[in-house]
C-alpha cells in the first residue's frame, strides 16, 4: 500500500512538473499562435533571478514566488514590444526570431555569470513520510503550486475582464478589435503573463536542478511536446497533454529506467500527432479554455 502511494506520488509529480514547465508556453501559444522558442531561456532567467536574489540575502520564498515572475514578466513585455509584435501572422519568422532571442539570452547570461553552474540554492523543505517511504516535501509543494497556478489561470480567464477580452481576442482578433479592444495591448499583456508564468516555473525548479545558461534546452523539448500534443486550449490542453505524456513517461521510467521513459514519451507524442494532428483539444474538449 505504501509502495503504491509512493509510486503514485512520483507519477503525479512527473505530471505536475510537465504542466509547470509547459504552462507559460501554452498561454503564449494558445493566445497568439506564437511558438516561443525562447521559452527555455525564460525558465532559465527565472532560475537565475532566484539564485541572484537569494545570494543577495532576499528570502527564498519571496525571490521564487514574487521576484522571478516579476523580472521575467518584465523581460517578456520588453521582448514583445521590441521583437514579437513586428512578426504577428508570420509564424515561421516568429519561430526563427525567438530562436535568435534564445541564443542571444544564453549568450548574455554566459557573458555575465559564466558557463558553469551558478551557486545553487537548496530546496527549502524537508522530507515527507509516506508509511515506510519518504518523499521530498518540496516535490509535494511543487505539485500543490502547479494545481494552484492552473486554477489561478482558469479564474483569470473565466472571471476577470482581462480574461474575457483575452478570450475574445483568441477566438476572433479582428472582431475583438472592431469592438474596441486593443488587441495589441492584449497580446503584450498575455505575452508578459506567459513569460511571468515561465519565470515562476524556472524559479521554482531552480532549487531542484541548479541553474546553467544552457539549462533551457533540457526543458523545451518536453514543454513543446506537451503543448503541441495538448492542442490550442490553454488549460485543458496543458492538463491533458501533461497527464497523458507525463503518465506514460512516469510508468515507463518506473518499469525500465528514465532513458526509456523519455523514449516512450517521444514515441507516444509522435503517434498521437499522427492520429490527432491538432492535438488532444483539437478533437476532444474543444470548447474548453
Amino acid at each position: 500500500m505504501d509502495l503504491v502511494v509512493a509510486v503514485l506520488f512520483q507519477l503525479i509529480y512527473v505530471i505536475a512538473n510537465l504542466a509547470l514547465i509547459s504552462l507559460g508556453l501554452a498561454i503564449i501559444f494558445g493566445m497568439m499562435r506564437v511558438i516561443n522558442l525562447a521559452h527555455g531561456e525564460f525558465l532559465m532567467l527565472g532560475g537565475y533571478t532566484v539564485v541572484v536574489a537569494t545570494n543577495m540575502g532576499i528570502n527564498i520564498w519571496v525571490s521564487m514566488l514574487i521576484l522571478a515572475p516579476l523580472v521575467v514578466g518584465i523581460i517578456g513585455v520588453i521582448v514583445e514590444r521590441l521583437l514579437i509584435r513586428w512578426l504577428y501572422g508570420r509564424m515561421v519568422d516568429t519561430l526563427l526570431a525567438t530562436w535568435g532571442l534564445s541564443l542571444l539570452l544564453v549568450g548574455i547570461v554566459t557573458s555575465i555569470f559564466g558557463a558553469s553552474t551558478a551557486t545553487t540554492v537548496s530546496p527549502p523543505l524537508g522530507a515527507v513520510r509516506i508509511g515506510a517511504y519518504s518523499a521530498s516535501g518540496y516535490e509535494l509543494f511543487l505539485i500543490l503550486i502547479t494545481i494552484a497556478l492552473l486554477v489561478a489561470v482558469w479564474m483569470t480567464l473565466r472571471f476577470t475582464k482581462l480574461g474575457l477580452l483575452a478570450r475574445g481576442t483568441m477566438q476572433n482578433a479582428e472582431m475583438a478589435s472592431s469592438l474596441g479592444v486593443s488587441t495589441s495591448r492584449i497580446y503584450m499583456i498575455t505575452f508578459g503573463l506567459g513569460a511571468a508564468v515561465s519565470g515562476l516555473a524556472g524559479g521554482l525548479l531552480a532549487p531542484m536542478t541548479g541553474v546553467l545558461p544552457t539549462i533551457g534546452a533540457t526543458y523545451i523539448a518536453k514543454a513543446f511536446i506537451t503543448v503541441i500534443s495538448g492542442g490550442a486550449s490553454i488549460l485543458a490542453g496543458t492538463a491533458a497533454g501533461s497527464v497523458l505524456l507525463g503518465g506514460i513517461n512516469g510508468i515507463f521510467s518506473f518499469i525500465a529506467g528514465s532513458t526509456f521513459g523519455e523514449i516512450a514519451l517521444l514515441l507516444a507524442a509522435i503517434i498521437l500527432l499522427r492520429l490527432m494532428p491538432r492535438g488532444i483539444t483539437g478533437r476532444f474538449f474543444r470548447k474548453s479554455l
Binding site: 513586428w86 526570431a97 530562436w99 535568435g100 541564443l103 542571444l104 539570452l105 557573458s111
Partner: peptide
C-alpha cells in the same frame, strides 16, 4: 551564442 543570436534576429527582421 550572442553573436549568432544577433545574426539570426537581424536577418529575420
Amino acid at each position: 551564442n550572442l553573436v549568432l543570436g544577433v545574426i539570426l534576429i537581424v536577418f529575420v527582421l
